[in-house]
Design a protein around this nucleic acid. Sequence first.
DNA 1: TTGTATGCGTTATCAC
DNA 2: GTGATAACGCATACAA
Lengths: 370, 370
Amino acid sequence: MSIPRIAKLAKVSLGTVDRALHNRGRISEETRNKILRIAEELGYQTNPRARALAIGKRQFRIGICIPREMHQYFDSIHDGIENELKNFSEFRVALVNSSPRQTRDSRYEHVAYLLQQDIQALIVCPGDAQELSELIASAKGAGIPVIFISSDAPASQRTSVVWVDPGLIGRIAGELMARFLGQRGRTAVVTGDLTNLSHRKRAESFARRFKEIANNRQRCEIVEGHDDYEETFEKVSSLLRQQPTLRGIYVATANCIPVCKAIHAQGKANKVHVIATHLFPEMVPYFENQTIWATIYHRPNWLGQYALRLALRSVLEKKPLRSSYLVQPQIILASNMHLVRERAKASRRARFDDTVTALGADPVDEDDVA
Amino acid sequence: MSIPRIAKLAKVSLGTVDRALHNRGRISEETRNKILRIAEELGYQTNPRARALAIGKRQFRIGICIPREMHQYFDSIHDGIENELKNFSEFRVALVNSSPRQTRDSRYEHVAYLLQQDIQALIVCPGDAQELSELIASAKGAGIPVIFISSDAPASQRTSVVWVDPGLIGRIAGELMARFLGQRGRTAVVTGDLTNLSHRKRAESFARRFKEIANNRQRCEIVEGHDDYEETFEKVSSLLRQQPTLRGIYVATANCIPVCKAIHAQGKANKVHVIATHLFPEMVPYFENQTIWATIYHRPNWLGQYALRLALRSVLEKKPLRSSYLVQPQIILASNMHLVRERAKASRRARFDDTVTALGADPVDEDDVA
DNA sequence: TTGTATGCGTTATCAC
DNA sequence: GTGATAACGCATACAA
């Protein structure tokens, strides 16, 4: 089941088989079909290691566009990308980085820039669903796979998306909250911005699942904090004053610190509890004093790692990509908190800023295990 | 940083570098040292893909000894092994299987048999800590790596163990139970056999963590079911009669069905809830009727997959193995139950029975993602 | 339109 | 002890 073997069976040369298999033209329909038929029958699969070896000297360039805000989250994605890079140290891969400052800033100019940099694949955390569609269509035309991380824009022509199902996240949080609270007390959601599809989905799924289990007919208040510290603190503080029976808050975004602070400021420290999102060092004290009871960890590190793996597989091994890769979220309690990398690690973002990270260093474990 | 480059720098031939790097003898100390020094300076790492290509025609044989009882659990391990096998389809790997019928049966004769089969690595689910030590020492002497799955025997000379920290499992279950029950009601543990180190560890950790959080001073009853259906059903039934304030049961072994049945038989259906271990089809109804509130999933599939990956890495890439690989358990609720493979899949054990599974079929995604 | 030659980095088999 | 040389499977530049 190798090219030489096919060549022998078809009584042609290696080059001919190669042309048939890879649609390179300069081949007659007849021989092409004969060869393809034989390859089919033999169940030919190209040997990725041999291919890797053969094309190993080329430079590959991968474009990266991931906003810089919310360090705890996006830095993890970047770390994941770097991690995976080490698994490809035999190749000459360069990451070309161009990222907007704020989460809500336009990615247009950045992606446009990246597409001019002779990249072979593009990894983006998209913001607005619409703005990139034109650029992505042109990338597709140029044969450049575009991989979305963390959120999707279904209308776009992106090749693949690597993310966590937001409905699933909401349902898990809702079920957990219902079990934690039993029948007593009501709950609320703090989210970023309901115009964001993922945020809305999480909030809705949470509320639905909570009511389903807790048999609770009360309205579940939804607070938009816009990932702003002050705004969130104020809104949650007033919510706590208005709703004395509030017992649980699901913070569907990374911005849970002002929520915890508000709870303590209102003297509700052991009365109101939080289910949060992600995990980073500032949260640890609130885990320890039992303000946070659980957090839903989206594994940003793994999102990044997998996105780069897909990009490089597509480029190096010509592997066709599926349109969607769903990553499983993890439920984190105080007992397994120590297993999350972001709990302790300092930000390394500096290394990434607007640089071309050339590579080729020490190979490393992929360490899903830990 | 390749062998030819080192050869040029050292002004020797490829063969000489090879002999220096791999301690093949037939080389003078002097040139050996010179070459090793240069390789060190250049940070030489052998290119695994090239190596793979070069040794691709050899046969490799991996011995497997995993008991057949408890299909839901051990079959998953086997499935994981087969999964990983597909990622190495370019090689000629054969799995040599010899497994005891019962979990508690001796593995001695099986392992002894496997060691005579010209295997290059051995994967075992050990039972008794002692019985294999002599065989394992001799395997070590013969340069055959021995990888334990799922439980450890610290005194033995095994190369590596791939497992889930039993203390961690117990603490997670304990914390979850404490959160679920709040301050009300007491709890109990159903386990297999307290002479088994992992089982004891899980039970103890559970009890300690539960008390810590729930501020509960009551004794936490521990029931040994010996993974026997009848015995477990009887013991749990009588426990439920004796302890009317019992609210939660942690089943630390896969044997949770008789526990659920006993709860229903005693008319405690919505009063007593279960945190279980693993997930398989028979459990689904009890998840749906809210008898089971959560389960701790040890990811047996991944245990198997990773064990084979380590074995093949050790053999094919000469990669040194760490002594312990800790896999993270997952907390499963009704909301994310559908993500667990074992929930639905039928047993495929037949394929494995006492056969030499020769291979080389279709390569496949590794799909941690799903 | 087809065939041949060369190289990727490693291992293995010779001959010297 | 050491150095050529071929082979693994694939890609590619060049020759026919």
